[in-house]
Amino acid sequence: MTPVLSKIRFRDAQIEMAHGAGGKASRRLVEGLFAPILFEGSQDPLGDAAFVDVDGSSIAITTDSFVVKPITFPGGSIGELAVNGTVNDLAVAGAQATALVVTFVLEAGLPTELLEAEIRAMASAAHRAGVVIAGGDTKVVEHGKGDQIYISSCGVGHRISGITISPKTVRPGDRVILSGPIGDHGITILLARGELDLEADLRSDTRSVLPLVQAMARAAAPGIRWMRDPTRGGVATSLNELVRDCGLGAVICEDKLPIHDAVRGACELLGLDSLHIANEGQFLAVVAQEYAETALDALHRTDGGEEAAIIGEIREQPAGTVLVSTLYGSKRIVDMLVGDPLPRIC
């Protein structure tokens, strides 16, 4: 089967860092180069996981890779991200992770002590998340050709009963729920790099969101339309993807966004928009209006969901656009991230 070359829309001459940042450039790469060749024939919008038919059963499958510097940081490490990230991708697709397989690309010269610590962190995280690590692969590259450790993990799981989600089911009036405070992970990493000389009492929020998704499903499954985990690119990017996929609009109320003081402070100081900062332990859900309070209540009563909030709603207009509204009635558009968030002084 030959690929239909006319559908390849990716015109960049070389790959840049922006293509991995999770924003517009990443989306262009996936939609413009990978999808036309690899996902030929598929009409579905790209989601966090795919459901495939294996012997008559519908299995969810996903993969993710983890490249982070530094590899350990307050609240976690690359190993935990690798487990939780994949469990979360499955959870927000409406699936419970059963097993993971992991691949390590290790840089020659990496102290064994460091590797052992990561493997232990992964075992711990897998245990906490209720998932089995069934196998893996290891490759070693020359010193200087890889940032200590790269991990990629592939997860499989089965549907959480009652949940069928698709951007096509989203309707005006649906509520947007956020599971907890934004920006903790991204800002923690930024500070942990040590280049900016900032200190704060912040930890990465990396965790499995599966228990929260399950709690919400038990209370409000018929009302859950769409979910996503706002990792690289932040809440703004995830919501922009949604509005593009469903053809509607979203309005977020700035004052309803849960955010820790230190994240706010760092964003103000560096001129960053908290809506573009990565999260590793949160999810967004669009829930039908009549189920929204029940869903929120279920989150509040679950460990780790205390700070969940309804942050906005879906509107018919402006289509394809995410607006943020302030307490005093003015609005601004918030777009997908372009490249990595850069601190500014002006």
Binding site: Q317, P318, T321, L323, K331, R332, I333, V334
Partner: peptide, 11 residues
């Protein structure tokens, strides 16, 4: 922040 706002019908 702004330019697509002018394309909006009513908000």
């Amino acid at each position: 922040y702004e330019h697509r706002k002018s394309e909006l019908v009513t908000v």
